[in-house]
Simulated scan of single mutants.
Amino acid sequence: MTTRGAEARTSNAVHIIDDDLAIRRALTMLAEAAGLSVRAHADAESFLRRFDPQTSGCVVTDVRMPGASGLDLLRHLRQAAADLPVLVITGHGDVPMAVEAMKAGACDFLEKPFDSDAFLDAIGRALDQRARTRQAGTQTEVLRARRASLTEREAAVMDLVAEGLSNAETAARLSISVRTVENHRARVMEKMEARSLSDLVRMALRLGPA
């Protein structure tokens, strides 16, 4: 069953993949009752045929399916560099596969049988994770753009500040005066829009060396 296809690209879309029609329908009804947009697929191949790297929301997939398994799906998404959280459903005795799925990038797994609250809670965590990942990615891009505005010397000062060097130590490392370091540091704080030294250090650590 496919429902609200046009809405499936919204931030709360849930893509359900399971070869068992009864389970697929039951999970679709649960998600829709919670106000979520749903797109359901009978197998991983049908999902991948429609897959867009910009697809939003999260994926709920059975780990064991005819054809491509949930693990195969996870590997494909990893190769495509998709930031789509994947919630894996496992049957009795499939916990080792669930652990392997987590290592392959699954955000969580549910072992059958599970109740509706556990299912919806797991989806909520998956969607929250994606929102945090997207937000972090956007923030990192903003920080990269700010650092790109730094001169080579300012970027060097920022990196040394992140290492914990004092102004005097930075001046010695760069063979410049302490006053020059202070001036560079003030411009770095302004360009990076850092509110404090600790704020600047966090930014530098997130970005890594220039």
Rank of each mutant, 00 (worst) to 15 (best):
R153Y: 09
E154Q: 13
E154Y: 03
E154P: 01
A156T: 13
V157A: 04
V157S: 06
M158D: 05
M158W: 08
M158R: 09
D159C: 11
L160C: 08
L160Y: 07
V161Y: 11
V161K: 07
V161C: 11
V161I: 15
A162C: 11
E163F: 00
E163G: 01
E163V: 00
E163N: 02
G164P: 09
L165I: 10
L165Q: 12
S166F: 04
N167Y: 10
E169C: 09
E169G: 09
E169K: 12
T170Q: 06
T170I: 15
T170H: 05
T170D: 03
A171R: 07
A171E: 07
R173H: 13
L174C: 03
L174T: 04
L174K: 06
L174W: 05
L174N: 04
S175R: 08
S175L: 10
S175G: 10
S175F: 10
S175Y: 07
I176S: 02
I176R: 03
V178F: 09
V178W: 10
R179L: 09
R179V: 14
T180H: 14
V181W: 02
V181K: 01
V181C: 01
V181N: 00
E182P: 01
N183S: 15
N183R: 15
H184D: 09
R185F: 09
A186H: 10
A186P: 02
R187Y: 00
R187I: 01
V188E: 01
V188D: 00
M189L: 12
E190Y: 06
E190V: 04
K191Y: 08
K191W: 09
K191C: 10
K191Q: 12
M192I: 05
M192L: 06
A194Q: 05
A194N: 07
A194C: 07
R195M: 08
S196Y: 00
S196G: 09
L197M: 14
L197T: 14
S198V: 12
